[in-house]
Amino acid sequence: MKSLPLRLAVRGIPTAHAQALRQGGPDANGQLPLRAVAQGPGNPCRHCLQLIREGDEKLVLAYRPFDHAQPYAETGPIFLHAADCPRYDAEALPAWFAHLSPALVRGYNAADWIVYETGQVLDGPALDATCRTLLAREDVAYVHIRSKFNCFQARVERGLAPQGGA
């Protein structure tokens, strides 16, 4: 019997958090998000995981993708569309992630601590396979993808198994 490939669950940051930031809530450093106009192609929104169009308004802020502060809870800069956008929720990485070069990946355990030997620097086209390999490990609960500037891009988890039978 052939095993099914591991499914991925890729989601943007939680909608409630994005909305709070858009409404003037503080970022991870306790500061108000800055408003700016997107310039050039390198402005990914961490909620919809799409690129913010040049000329559109964006928020620039510090983000910590963890529920609480602890030694491995890194904080870094991110962008958000200033206007509402739909949260990304899919079984695949956004196509533009293939252009992250290099990208950083780290596996984390259920206690939100880095599983050290999982850290890698790689080119975007290798992200999908690397996430699947890391998530196949029992000691890895989820994976973070970051840019070469250490900006958080997305959290990747194991997807749900297919429903139903033959």
Rank of each mutant, 00 (worst) to 15 (best):
K58E: 07
T130Y: 02
R22V: 05
A166E: 10
L51F: 06
L61D: 04
G107D: 06
M1H: 15
A141M: 02
A16Q: 14
G30S: 07
V37E: 12
D89A: 15
Q19M: 10
M1A: 15
R137V: 04
R106V: 13
P102D: 07
A161F: 08
L127D: 01
R158Q: 05
D128T: 13
L49D: 01
L6D: 07
A69C: 09
P102N: 08
D89N: 13
L32R: 15
A83H: 14
P102M: 08
H47M: 09
Q39E: 13
L4F: 13
P125W: 03
I145P: 00
Y142W: 10
A141G: 05
L32V: 14
H17N: 12
D128A: 08
I114Y: 06
D27C: 05
Y116N: 15
C131P: 01
A103D: 01
V105M: 06
C151I: 03
A90D: 12
F79I: 02
E57R: 15
T75E: 12
I13K: 01
Y142E: 05
N43C: 11
R53V: 09
R53W: 07
K148E: 15
P77F: 11
V143S: 00
L135N: 01
D112P: 04
N109D: 14
P102I: 08
W96R: 04
L51K: 08
Y72Q: 13
L127T: 04
E117P: 11
A82N: 07
N109K: 08
L49H: 03
G165K: 09
R146S: 08
A154T: 10
A83N: 11
H144R: 00
L59D: 02
R146G: 01
Y88P: 06
P44N: 05
D89F: 10
R11E: 14
T15E: 13
H47V: 02
G164S: 02
D128S: 09
Y88H: 12
L61I: 08
V37A: 10
P26F: 11
R87H: 06
P94K: 03
G165W: 10
P65H: 05
A136T: 10
A38Y: 09
T118K: 04
A161L: 13
K58S: 03
P65E: 04
C45P: 05
P5C: 08
Q153P: 00
E157M: 09
I13A: 03
P33Y: 00
E74K: 12
G30L: 03
A20D: 12
R155K: 13
P77H: 13
T133I: 07
R64P: 05
I114N: 06
A95C: 07
Q70E: 11
R7M: 10
N43S: 09
G30M: 04
A18P: 06
Q163R: 12
V143D: 00
L80R: 03
A161C: 02
